[in-house]
């Protein structure tokens, strides 16, 4: 295969807190190839957003990248100066956040902000830039784009604001789009419109998308490949069909069973949802051994003692679970701990 567009290797990210340094992302590796959509799925505290923020060094003051490499077209982003990164943001890699108001300035018009995004990376003259801005708004499905240019963000609905943010993000045709829960704050009808828009943009311009979500439905709708995260680690990674046909990690299996779908016919009180017991662990109280073992229905003694490696099964399907590893290998690794 060709060189990946984005290659994250052995990334660990910590946060300074009053109670000491917490590791939010632990030894994470992933790749995004040209034109593909990779989804990172996980619950709160899984490290999915932190991973996406570290790519463009948007971690904030308390975040520290403890180890690892993030390569964009072979170029190490972690060694890049802030000045150079500023040039890359928007031009090479763009980001779409969950809440569009965090990306829009309430005191400037849509036109103002869009023109700023356009002019930052191109030498278009004012009139040309304005024409391009209107065209962008039209492309993301905004009705009456000329008049919207003069509106302030508060005058638009959540879905329209997210379209504006997407228009700003694609203004300089970046090869990589990072979308962190882009539809979570929206109605399901508007979510369907935005997901369709992202698919269309990808088809038209071959953009790669790194999509962060908690919703397996969005994953099923969008992903080519999926990374499942739990408590800061990747627990499973596979092609989307493989993951949905045969989820290997008990956590992934649990998530799929716990998700009530509109297609399941149920009679009143007849069947129950299969839930994952317990709570998502806090990063300062991570369990020993496998981080999922206290909630896992198949937990064995070894799961409490040693952390399982992320190991490859068939077809590059990676999974972090002792149950998928042959017994002899475990015995060697665990130094003779009884299983």
């Amino acid at each position: 295969m060709t060189e990946p567009l984005l290659k994250i290797e052995r990334l660990s990210v910590g946060f300074r807190t009053d109670g000491g340094e917490l590791k939010a992302v632990d030894d994470l590796s992933l790749t995004v190839y040209e034109g593909e959509t990779v989804c990172i799925v996980g619950e709160s505290g899984s490290g999915k957003s932190v991973t996406s923020q570290s790519i463009l060094k948007l971690l904030g003051r308390n975040g520290i990248i403890q180890q690892g490499e993030i390569r964009y077209k072979g170029h190490n982003l972690l060694g890049t100066s802030e000045q150079e990164l500023r040039r890359m943001r928007g031009k090479d890699i763009s980001m779409i956040a969950q809440e569009p108001m965090t990306a829009l300035n309430p005191v400037f018009t849509i036109g103002n902000q869009l023109l700023e995004a356009i002019k930052l990376h191109s030498k278009r003259r004012r009139r040309e830039a304005r024409e391009y801005a209107v065209e962008l708004l039209r492309r993301v499905g905004i009705p009456r784009p000329e008049s919207i240019m003069n509106d302030y963000p508060h005058a638009l609905s959540g879905g329209m604001r997210q379209r504006v943010v997407i228009a700003m993000a694609i203004a300089s045709k970046p090869p990589l789009l990072i979308a962190d829960e882009p539809t979570t704050a929206l109605d399901v009808t508007v979510q369907a419109q935005i997901l369709q828009l992202l698919k269309k943009l990808q088809k038209d311009s071959g953009t790669s998308i790194l999509l962060i979500t908690h919703d397996l439905g969005v994953v099923a709708e969008m992903a080519d490949r999926v990374v499942v995260m739990y408590a800061g680690q990747i627990v499973e990674q596979a092609d989307v069909d493989a993951l949905f046909n045969r989820p290997l990690h008990p956590y992934t299996q649990g998530l799929m069973k716990a998700m009530p779908t509109i297609h399941t016919q149920t009679d009143e009180g007849e069947d129950r949802l299969i839930s994952i017991p317990g709570n998502v662990p806090m990063l300062n109280h991570l369990p020993q051994g496998c981080r999922f073992h206290p909630r896992c229905p198949y937990s064995q003694p070894i799961c409490r003692q040693a952390e399982p490696p992320l190991a490859a099964g068939n077809d590059k399907h990676l999974v972090r679970c002792w149950l998928t590893i042959p017994t002899e290998t475990i015995q060697q690794a665990a130094g003779g701990i009884a299983i």
């Binding site: 009705p143 609905s157 879905g159 329209m160 399901v188 009808t189 508007v190 979510q191 369907a192 419109q193 997901l195 369709q196 919703d215 397996l216 439905g217 969005v218 099923a220 709708e221 992903a223 989307v240 069909d241 949905f244 998700m259 779908t261 509109i262 297609h263």
Partner: peptide, 19 residues
Amino acid sequence: NPVHHPQLRSRPKTILEGE
């Protein structure tokens, strides 16, 4: 509503336009 399996993606559906 999003599909619950990637194989259902190709199923034709009408998207409700507007708000």
